[in-house]
Nucleic acid binder design. Structure first.
Length: 401
RNA sequence: GCAGAGAUGGCGGAGUGGACAAUCGCGGCUGACUGUAAAUCAGUUGCCAUUACGGCUACGAAGGUUCGAAUCCUUCUCUCUGCACCA
C-alpha cells in the first residue's frame, strides 16, 4: 500500500472525530517521527474486533515510521474508567495486571510490530503525584464539564453512584500524554473526552497539544455495542471457525459497518460492495457476508485458515453435514447411559440436566442424525457414535470398555 | 448530622403476607422457515427428579413474627435524593 493511502486510512477510515484534522494532516506530512499514544486497559485480557480495528490504525502509523507508545494503565485501573462502564469497576491486583498484559501481548503481536513499540506503565509517574499538583491540574476543569459526559448524566439521573475519584480519571489519563509527550492519541469514540483532556493538560504544561483521533465503535453480533459483558463479542483469538461463524451471524444491517471498521478492504471496494448489497437478492446478501467473514478471519489467522473456515461453514451450517475434524472426541467406559447423563457429562457444554431435558424436548438432540424425543432413553454405547446437541456441540464417542 | 427513598433472576424492571421459581422487556437457548448461526414466527430460559397439584435453593446480610414472607418487624451493610454545612 502506498504511503498516501496509509495516511488516508489513518485519517478517514471509520473515523469518529479528529481534533483537529488539519493538525494531523500537517503532522503526517512533516518528516517528524510522531509519538502515538494508545491506552491499554489492563483489566481486560481479550482484544475484540472493535478494539483491534483501532490497533490496525496504530499499525498504519508504525508502517509510516512513527513511534507507537502503549500506556498500560496499571495506575488508572485502580480507579476505573467511567467511559466504558455504567457502574464502578472492581479493583485489580498488580499480579493480575501483569498477567493480563502478557496475554494481551500475544494478541497485539498479530497486529503490531512489537519490537518497535514503547511500553510505559502509568504508575511510573502517577504514583508520584501529590495533592498540590493534582489541584493545579484539576482547577482547569469544571464540574459541569465532567458531569456533562453522557454516562455520568445517565448515572446521575438513575440514582447510580458516581465516585469523586472517577472525575479524576480524565486528568490522570490526560497527564499520561504529558509524561510521554504524545503527538497523537488514538482511541475509540468513547475515549473522546479523555483524549481531549490530555490535549488540554498538555496545554497547561506548555507543550504542543496532541491530536485527538477517535474511531467509530463496532457493533456486536446482536447489533448492540460490542461488549464482553453482553456476550456479543468477536475476539481476535477466537478460533477461525468461530470468527467466521460469528461474523456470519451479524445482522444484515451492519455488514457495511463491519467492512469499514473491521477489515482492510479498500474504501473503494467497500463502496462497490455497498452498491451490490443494495441491489442484491437474498442469496447475494449472504455471498457478500461470506466475503466479509473471510476477510476478517484471514486478517487474524491465515488465508488458508479462512478458506477452511469457509468450507466448514458451508458444510456444517448450510448443508448441515457433520465434519469429523470438528468433533470433540469423548471416551466412554460404560456400556449404557441415559441420554440426559450423556449430554451433560460428556459435552461439557450443557450446564444442567434440566437444560438437557429442555434441549431434548425442543428437538435439539440427535444421535447419528436421528432426533431423540425420549428424555429417558437408554443409549447403547458404540464407538464412532455421533451425538449432536444443539446447533454447535458435536461429540464423537469412543468406547474404552 | 437530620429526613426520605431504595437493594429482586445475565441486564432492565414488576410484585408489597399464600395461587411467586417470581408479570413483562432485552439478552440466551431450541425449533420452524430461509439465504446463514440474518430477519420473522413459535417454544423455552434456577437446580434435582419426572409418576406427580413433587423436592431443594433463591428476591442485599443476619435474626424474628406467622400455619405460611420477596412481601411484616428488628439490627446490620450498601446506594440514592433533599436539607443542613459552604470551610
Amino acid at each position: 500500500m502506498k504511503e498516501e493511502d496509509k495516511k488516508k486510512l489513518i485519517l478517514d477510515r471509520a473515523t469518529f472525530r479528529v481534533i483537529t484534522k488539519k493538525e494531523l494532516e500537517n503532522s503526517l506530512d512533516s518528516n517528524k517521527t510522531l509519538r502515538i499514544k494508545f491506552g491499554i486497559d489492563p483489566t481486560a485480557s481479550q482484544i475484540h474486533l472493535g478494539r483491534a480495528s483501532t490497533i490496525q490504525r496504530l499499525r498504519d502509523f508504525q508502517d509510516l515510521g512513527h513511534k507507537v507508545v502503549l500506556i498500560i494503565g496499571d495506575f488508572t485501573a485502580k480507579v476505573g474508567d467511567a467511559s466504558d462502564k455504567d457502574s464502578e469497576r472492581k479493583v485489580i491486583t498488580e499480579n493480575e495486571i501483569r498477567e493480563n498484559f502478557k496475554t494481551y501481548e500475544t494478541q497485539l503481536k498479530k497486529i503490531l510490530d512489537l519490537s518497535k513499540v514503547e511500553y510505559r506503565y502509568n504508575s511510573e509517574w502517577l504514583e508520584k503525584f501529590n495533592f498540590s499538583s493534582i489541584l493545579d491540574i484539576s482547577k482547569h476543569f469544571t464540574v459541569a464539564q465532567l458531569i456533562e459526559r453522557e454516562n455520568f448524566i445517565d448515572r446521575y439521573k438513575n440514582h447510580k453512584p458516581i465516585g469523586l475519584h472517577e472525575f479524576l480519571y480524565p486528568i490522570m489519563q490526560g497527564y499520561d500524554s504529558v509524561a510521554i509527550k504524545s503527538d497523537v492519541e488514538l482511541g475509540g469514540s468513547d475515549q473522546l473526552f479523555n483524549i481531549l483532556a490530555g490535549r488540554e493538560i498538555q496545554g497547561y504544561f506548555n507543550m504542543k497539544k496532541q491530536v485527538c483521533l477517535t474511531k467509530k465503535l463496532l457493533s456486536g453480533t446482536d447489533g448492540r455495542k460490542m461488549s464482553s459483558s453482553w456476550g456479543n463479542v468477536i475476539n481476535i483469538t477466537d478460533q477461525p471457525n468461530d470468527i467466521y461463524g460469528k461474523v456470519m451471524s451479524i445482522r444484515d444491517s451492519v455488514i457495511i459497518e463491519y467492512f469499514n471498521i473491521a477489515t482492510r478492504v479498500s474504501t473503494e471496494d467497500i463502496k462497490n460492495i455497498e452498491k451490490d448489497l443494495n441491489e442484491s437478492t437474498s442469496s447475494g446478501i449472504m455471498d457478500i457476508k461470506k466475503v466479509l467473514a473471510y476477510e476478517i478471519t484471514a486478517l487474524y489467522s491465515t488465508k488458508k485458515d479462512a478458506i477452511k473456515a469457509e468450507n466448514n461453514f458451508k458444510k456444517t451450517v448450510q448443508e448441515k453435514q457433520v465434519i469429523s475434524d470438528d468433533l470433540i472426541l469423548v471416551k466412554v467406559d460404560k456400556k449404557k447411559a441415559r441420554i440426559i447423563d450423556l449430554i451433560t457429562s460428556l459435552t461439557g457444554q450443557i450446564p444442567s440436566k434440566a437444560d438437557a431435558r429442555r434441549l431434548i424436548k425442543s428437538g435439539g438432540v440427535y444421535i447419528d442424525n436421528v432426533r431423540i424425543n425420549d428424555v429417558n432413553l437408554e443409549i447403547d454405547m458404540k464407538s464412532g457414535m455421533i451425538v449432536k446437541v444443539g446447533k454447535r456441540n458435536l461429540v464423537k464417542i469412543k468406547t474404552t470398555f
